[in-house]
Design a binder for these strands. Structure first.
Lengths: 352, 352
DNA sequence: GTGAAAGCGCTAACAC
DNA sequence: GTGTTAGCGCTTTCAC
């Protein structure tokens, strides 16, 4: 497939220079605000550029400077509203600083078993990251990290591409991160479940190779153990893909095999919504027969009759802080990695 | 804010050429598959490029060719799941053809009154579109069009930037479009409402300056009139921002002023979810006291106890066809504009 | 079949 | 204070 159609020629810096009767260098100085031209000339050049509808080519600029003045935001799955809410705030924050946020949908994390080793997923994430790097992105915001992404992170570090990890992270990775205390968040949920009398509690943790997921799963299980309980499902059954479908399918099986289950603690809201679907199908009343909980508190976790009990997280702040941290790195700050733990809060609604 | 940190030098085509002992031109031929090198040389160059971890600079390529091999997808509001579902399929379709989809969140359409003339919104959309153009995007997919965006569309046409309109469109605009028959979709919903005995029906249409919204509003009203009925709200009250909050606020007012309302027909699902929130607040039982309907059938319109009656639309196909049409244009096809009307279907669930 | 060289539009030395 | 110039990394004519 070859691109044929020719584009109308853009107005270039040379065009402006010619009309103004100056060199392109002066135009560059005048427009970027660099010293080197008189105020008077600067004004004249600005006026002409404006009149000609001149807009600098970010591509030429990028080739010259090595930076595109854009931030790449890589979302595992753009149809997970939790991440798009983070994205919206990141866009706003970056815009204030003159950066464009270019969002990519990586298409990950939806496997039903949540149990793959992440090889294929890592390859796909790396490919998308490179697509941004080859366009000279100024920096990358990553949300979909698995343990298997460590080589990619190392590659990014070697090539000095600024990176911030949002929410999820690869442990031990020396780049900035902003998120919540996953273990504590899960513990809060589990304590609530136990306090309200649940005893046959299933844990549906998320992806086995995701640090956030394992931290949550551990938080669930530790809390159960501390109360002298066990997950109602076997250890190998703790994992699920990060998707509604996965939550649905896992719950569906589980319900078929065990009628005593009285609660399902899910690693995130999306999984919990799938469990709710399964409850409806199986005719299990929520919360009377079975309690269901999530983590994230994405906006669609509470709509009209749907009122999921979950953990609320400062999404707006995650996006905003993430951009701030990244911009510091883009500006050359090379201090030690920042790990910012934001507050979370249990939100008891109608499902538990 | 200045970008300071220097990036590790990338492996360039010249590096490959030097190691292979050939000119950079030969490397270019070898790697792009162009004729001009022997099969043997081609293989040798490929091997060296591989070994060196060479990746072509898309920026340099872009500067030379005028195209970045990327498609810009501009979403009015990235937290509207309906559009992100379209986005996911567009990404998949474009990836098959070697194009990267870069998604932007424009941040539009959420005004509560849905009544602004779109001046500010048009300016914001134009700014985002230019951010893509200045990066030499191969083409643009637009989803958030209002009547006031016509100047932007004209600018794009003048500068030969291929464009496809998804779902929404500016009437009379000679660019490709793929969507549904909005008027008919609204009529289907309204007929259902009337057939099930509703008589005091409120219409909450969406943005006044959106063609899709007005087509739907007209579909609602025409169908009411044909049945000898009127909207239960005044004409000026027909409009709402494309958001849950807006749906909530409008319904909240409406419920306070009129207790006979027995149905709310909404221009899209998001608005309908807001209305459902308001019903819950006001203690109105759905569907017994009041019926609520949407259009779009985004995935979160039906979760567990939440089962919105709406119109389902082939989202996957919209994204895929949109990419196909755009790629044709990028490849230089200049045939007459294509308008592709995809099938919709009323989906009766629990709210009406 | 292969290489030299021009140039895409811009920035940043450096010279004047 | 202003202009000249050398690239950034690639594609593409044009010679050989």
């Amino acid at each position: 497939m070859v691109e044929r159609r020719e584009r109308a020629r853009r107005t270039t810096m040379n065009d402006v220079a010619r009309v103004a009767g100056v060199s392109s260098a002066s135009v560059s100085y005048a427009l970027t605000g660099a010293p080197g031209v008189s105020d008077e000339l600067r004004e004249r050049i600005r006026a002409i550029a404006n009149e000609l509808g001149y807009r600098p080519s970010l591509v030429a600029q990028g080739l010259k400077t090595g930076r595109a003045r854009s931030i790449g935001l890589l979302l595992a799955d753009i149809s997970n509203p939790f991440y798009t809410e983070i994205a919206a705030s990141a866009v706003a924050a970056a815009g204030d600083e003159g950066y464009e946020v270019l969002i990519s949908h990586v298409g990950l994390g939806q496997d039903t078993d949540g149990d793959d080793d992440g090889e294929r997923e890592a390859a796909r994430l790396a490919a998308v990251a490179r697509a941004h790097i080859d366009r000279y992105t100024s920096g990358l915001m990553l949300t979909s990290l698995l343990a298997s992404d460590r080589p990619l992170l190392e590659e990014l570090r070697r090539t000095h591409v600024p990176v911030v990890q949002l929410y999820r992270r690869v442990p031990g990775e020396p780049s900035d991160w902003v998120g919540i205390d996953d273990h504590a968040a899960a513990a809060d949920v589990m304590n609530h479940l136990i306090a309200t009398g649940r005893r046959h509690i299933v844990v549906l943790g998320g992806q086995r190779s995701s640090y956030a997921s394992t931290a949550r799963a551990t938080g669930f299980v530790d809390t159960l153990r501390a109360a002298g309980l066990q997950p109602a499902n076997p250890d190998q059954g703790l994992w699920a893909g990060i998707s509604r479908r996965s939550g649905y399918e896992r719950a569906h099986e589980l319900f078929a095999g065990d009628t005593r289950i009285d609660a399902v603690a899910c690693g995130n809201d999306l999984i919990a919504l799938g469990v709710l679907d399964a409850c409806r199908d199986a005719g299990r009343a929520v919360p009377d027969d079975v309690a269901v909980t999530g983590i994230d508190d994405m906006s669609f976790a509470s709509v009209g009759p749907l009122q999921l009990t979950t953990v609320t997280v400062p999404r707006e702040q995650i996006g905003r802080r993430g951009v701030q941290l990244l911009l510091r790195r883009i500006d050359g700050n090379s201090g030690p990695p920042v790990e910012e733990v934001l507050p979370h809060r249990l939100r008891v609604r109608d499902t538990a």
